[in-house]
Design a protein around this nucleic acid. Structure first.
Lengths: 217, 217
DNA sequence: TAGATTGTTAATCGATTAACAATC
DNA sequence: TAGATTGTTAATCGATTAACAATC
């Protein structure tokens, strides 16, 4: 089964399309043309049509795109409709923030368990879930088969934890630690959120901007 | 003063170079060639040399790059050495996580103040700093001139808060809210951390991988 | 029907990779 | 010096934009 390779750039735009479409729907709109969406999003209508046509024919000549229908198609492409079980490793501040505020279920995930190693935290409840000790990771994964781990542990235990997760059968890691995980298994998907990289990029553009009005950012 | 436009792709790789160089230095290494770094990072040596040469001549034929020197150069390009004052708006879980764990000073920032609107939070201390009420934002910014705001407020107040920040003189926003801020001022730099986009991308690649061994990710 | 707008092909632009002379 | 490795130019590859026939 051969698949045409779809570029990473296209994939990264899909969630953004989804956000704009949700806003349009919330505003009561039914349909939108690529050119109108282009104005709102600040990208070319050509790119929008190219992006969508990568996955199918979602529009209609002379009409544009039906917002509900397009939302559903993009959601399906991104896998929102299928539910994947995930676990959070590390119930520190960041882990707790995700547990308290992040709507995993809106994005096709269900949060199944929380792990930590701190004596004070293990056994307590966070967000209605009992925090398990990380030494139970392997047995939990074998028995419950979650697919994804949210990695919010300190940097120094990041790689060892990731290794254990993968050995136990985890196939996706949402990595919040500020390093590139050393992973050899080709079947594991890793998606990074590198706070520090992002802040440095902000720093870069700030030191380049504002100095002369004709600079580009 | 005309500057050659440097591509965003190059900029996004700089923090990653910096992380690898720090690891190499920690491992006691003094110098590295583009080809050795290429193996470690999984990108081509050609790209590495191209990237660096965008900013200057940091290497030496027959020798490679001095790690300390290269680290310093890239750090300077990213603006690590200059200190920018920043404030956090929103002392919820995420704001607190950043205050507690994120080493702003390692990346050229100093955290100057924290704002919130909750009666319970305002007036308390977090990370050794007194939490101010958000109605003092304007006066604080005018008096203390922080450059950057870390936006960790709920989505519904994101745009209004951003507008106030910019009106008061903030020129950089590290945006953790899950939306694209509506900002018209051309001199404001925004860097987004969109958790939901990232998780959807993870979801996409998971639904595409593991099905057949010859698929690419 | 006439106007609007798609899906797609072709053209352009930009980014990555390859190659190699320069030189440490 | 000989070997290694850079910085840079040229070649390739891929992504974006433009154009337009198809068609709702």
């Amino acid at each position: 089964m051969k698949k045409a390779k779809i570029s990473h750039n296209v994939i990264t735009r899909l969630p953004r399309y989804l956000r704009y479409l949700a806003d349009l729907r919330d505003a009561g709109m039914i349909r939108i043309s690529s050119s109108e969406l282009s104005h709102q999003m600040g990208i070319t209508a050509s790119q929008i049509r190219q992006d969508f046509s990568t996955f199918g024919e979602f529009g209609q000549q002379g009409y544009g795109y039906n917002i509900d229908m397009l939302t559903k198609e993009i959601g399906d492409i991104l896998g929102i409709s299928s539910v994947r079980s995930c676990i959070i490793i590390g119930a520190g501040n960041l882990g707790r923030a995700l547990i308290a505020n992040f709507p995993f279920d809106e994005y096709g995930f269900s949060l199944a368990a929380i792990f930590d190693i701190s004596e004070e935290t293990v056994g307590t409840e966070i967000g209605g879930k009992n925090v398990l000790h990380a030494n139970q990771l392997e047995s939990y994964i074998e028995n419950n088969r979650p697919e994804v781990a949210v990695l919010t542990v300190p940097v120094k235990s990041a790689n060892s934890t990731a290794g254990r997760l993968i050995d136990a059968g985890i196939t996706g890691i949402w990595n919040f630690t500020n390093i590139d995980l050393k992973i050899t298994s080709p079947n594991v998907v890793v998606e990074n959120i590198h706070f520090s990289d992002s802040l440095l990029i902000l720093n870069y553009y700030m030191s380049r901007s504002n100095h002369s009005p004709d600079d580009e950012v």
